[in-house]
Amino acid sequence: MMMKSVQRALTFGLVLAVSGMASAAVVLKDGHPSKYFVKNGDTLWDISGRFLQEPWQWPEIWQINEEISNPHLIYPGDEIRLSYVDGEPRLSVKRGVEETVMSNGTVKLTPRVREIANDQAIPAIPASAIQSYLKEGLVVDRQEIIEAPYLVGGRDRRVIFGEGDTVYARDTKTQWEGLEQGYGFYRTGEQYVDPDTNEVLGYEARQIGLGRVSSHDDDMISLRVTDSSEDLRIDDRLFSTEDRRVRAVLYPSAPDTKIEAKVIRFFDRLNSVARNDVVVINKGLRDGLKEGNVLDIYGQGEVVRDRQQGDMVQLPRERTGSMVIFRVFDKVSYSLIMESTRPIYMNDIAESPAGSY
């Protein structure tokens, strides 16, 4: 029986934990190594991809070594070993060693003491690829936009503002109930529309600046603009700037129910995306998705003419990659492309991994 892992952590501003994973069969990759030494720049996904056909299934065969301190974290210098228990594959970690030169010139090898911060462990997925989306990306509905506090002006009768300026914002809805010290300035951007139903799924809110509250008077506050990526303007909205960098917890698992989604948004790409690019799909919390869910990606088959029959036919779809959901809103989700064998296009299909439902 395959071991089910609980409480697996891998932290570098991100934490990888495992809870209730789908029981799809684990298949070792052809030509897999028997051991691997962890290096700086590695991610858990890349390491597990050396051993497994499906890297997200790592926790299915992970074996904790209770003899070492904090066996849930993996650091550069550690050794990942593949072994078999009752005929079933197991992966385990052996801590790296450090060399100590003794007074007589001999070298003593001892297990490395882990008195270092957890955020020096290797990440589950490339943290740098998603950090800005964790901090700055929001998807809101029309009512949230209408009710959000908004910028009404600044000093010297100016209409645009930037870093170092003092600006004023108004909250007519709740009059700053639960006032915070910091806020983000946001501008409404892309409208997300379901390609199948034409339902408006939400609006992208882009963070264009940060501000610190300096004073409060009824429904008005004064803020010092501490950062701006572009000019701030009257009517820009304000939302809380909770720090999501260390709160992001990924659960590498198949969705609890079968998911069939489509890619509906690229960032900074025109025609296609590939590994380490971020996309938006048209499914979210209401569909049962959660952070850490893994989806396979399929390219739509080309429509061609059958020269024998004279009609148009669609070629079979092909699996072109996989993605990990790292941020979930009500009706859409942000995903990181983890693997891509071919370019990934708008309206490509993202669905639950085969064998997990």
Rank of each mutant, 00 (worst) to 15 (best):
W62L: 08
F161S: 03
I68E: 11
V26W: 06
V249P: 04
V225P: 01
V324R: 03
L82Q: 04
D171N: 10
T110H: 06
G288I: 09
G299I: 02
K108C: 00
G202T: 00
G96W: 04
S83V: 01
A121K: 07
V332A: 00
M3H: 11
E242L: 14
P111N: 13
S5W: 05
R275V: 14
I325M: 01
V263R: 05
T174P: 04
V304K: 10
G182S: 12
F266K: 07
G154E: 02
Q120K: 14
S69T: 11
R158K: 15
P149I: 07
R305V: 12
Q175L: 10
W45A: 03
Y251K: 10
L91H: 00
I349W: 08
Q120D: 12
D231C: 01
D165S: 08
G310F: 06
A17G: 10
G49M: 03
W56N: 00
E54K: 13
H32N: 11
G31R: 08
D30N: 11
M102K: 15
I125A: 07
D141I: 05
R112G: 05
V152G: 08
G41S: 07
S92H: 10
P195F: 02
E60K: 15
R307I: 11
I130S: 05
V279Y: 07
T100K: 14
A350P: 04
E339G: 08
Q7Y: 13
E177Q: 14
A124M: 12
I337H: 04
Y334A: 03
Y133G: 00
Y150M: 10
E318S: 06
Q191E: 15
G301N: 00
E199N: 09
A121C: 10
V139F: 06
I125C: 08
N293L: 01
E242H: 14
G178A: 05
S83F: 11
V303A: 03
R305F: 00
G209M: 01
Y334K: 01
E291S: 13
E147D: 15
P33V: 04
P123V: 09
V279A: 07
V6G: 10
G154A: 05
